[in-house]
Each structure stands twice: as structure tokens, then as C-alpha cells.
Amino acid sequence: MTPTLRRIGLVAWHVFKEGVRDRVLYAIGAFALLLVASAILIAQITAGQDVKIIKDLGLAVIELAGVLMAIVIGVGLVAREIDRRSIFSLLTKPLPRWEFVVGKFAGLLLTVMVNVAGMTAALFLMLTFAHFRMTPEYRAVLDAPVVDPRLLLVMVMIGAELALLIAVALFFSTFSSSALLSIVFTVGLYLAGLLSQDLRRFGDIVDVSPAVAWVVQAVGWIIPAFSAFDIKSQVVHGLPLPDGFVPMTLAYAALYATALIAASVGLFSRREFK
């Protein structure tokens, strides 16, 4: 392993260690597990739809918890180091700044992914439980298998979405000196990104001037398209996905996140620490 990779690994490992010992993470994780577990209760009162409800709620909660972790920890990654002045010690070590930024990204990605994986395991556990409580005749009429391996595909897409979100959070935290501002920016861009598909189709709205439509559509293409990763209902209903849909989406996330990390590195390398 090259020294560069080793150092990036050290920074990432440190982010992970700090992360998993942080109470915030426990709070989000516990809340998420509780909600996923409560899907069983909810499923009891919605006759016949229990598997769909467990899947819908489970996937939504996992995504939401991942988003919360990415934002809350992500914006603090650099801001907290500056607040606590530990950045002075760290950056005077033989650690180039770009390695610091990349290490932080990798570390948070690791932290969030481990949590997502944990919650996914919990969801599969519950689905297995539901599977064995059902009669084979009942299972036969469902859209999709109860314990559906395609759910992992949803997880891959959620993972890509979270990687992009982490890159956004990290980007804002590398030049903003206030964690609160970073949160506002990140959440704002995330919400805008969820609506980006509507923005990209803005031209379909009747009676809007072409100039306005053009500008809105351009914004829709430029902002990170967080809505592009949602295949939840598609998978829950057992519908097919177009060929190349998932790989293209992953390529999109990879390209966009790389561009954001490059921008973060550029900004962070020029930053002064008073």
C-alpha cells in the first residue's frame, strides 16, 4: 500500500471511529431501527398489504436515516476540526490537504454504509420473519418475492445517492466556517435535488416563456439529481428496470461526486486557518 493510500485510510478510519462513538449516530440509528421494527405493527392493521408496507416503510426509513447521518456528520467533518483547533495539529503533519479531504469523504461513506448495511440486515430479518408466517398460496399472488434480492439493488442506489449527498455536505463544509450554514446549504440543495426531475421537465408546463423554461431546466440539470436514485416503488411492485438504468445512475453519481470532491480539494487547499 502506498503511503498516500495509508494516510487516506488513517483519516477515514479515524472519521469512522469518531462517528460510531458519537451519540448523534446512535440516536439516528436507534430511531431508524425503531421505525423499521414498527413496520411490523403497522402491517398488522393493514390487512393483506403487510409485505408492501414493511418494504415501503423500511426502505424509506433507511434512506432517511442515511440522509440524516450524511448531513449531520458530513457538515461537521471539517467544521468541528476547525472549531476544536485540532485541524492545526492535523494539517501540520505530513498529510497533504487533498488526502485529508478524500480521507474524510471515504470515512463518512464507510460510516454511513456500515449503518445502512446494518439497517438493511434488520429489514431482511423482518421480511424473513414475514415470509415464514405466510402460506405458500398467499405468497404466490404477491408482485414480488417477500425476501426479494432486488431490494439490494435499491440499497445500491440509496448508497450512491448518499455518496453524492456526502460529497455535497463535505463541499459546503470545506469553505463555510459555520456548521449551521453548511447544514442549511446542504439540506437546501438536497431538497432542490429531490425536485430536480420536476425542474428538468419544466418545459412541459404550458404557457411559460421559453427563456424561463430554459433557465429552470438548466438548473434542473446542474444541481445534483437526488430524485434520480429512487427505484423503490419499482422494486417493491416487482416491475422491471430498463437495461443499463442502474449502471448509468451509478456512473452519474460517481462523476458528480468526483467533481464535487475535486472542487472541495481545490477550495480546501487554498483555505487559511486563523
Binding site: H14, D22, R84, F88, S89
Partner: peptide
């Protein structure tokens, strides 16, 4: 006045 990481 250094401070470091709470959880390490």
C-alpha cells in the same frame, strides 16, 4: 490551547 477529538 489545543483540543482534540472527544471520543478518542
Amino acid at each position: 490551547n489545543p483540543t482534540f477529538y472527544d471520543h478518542l
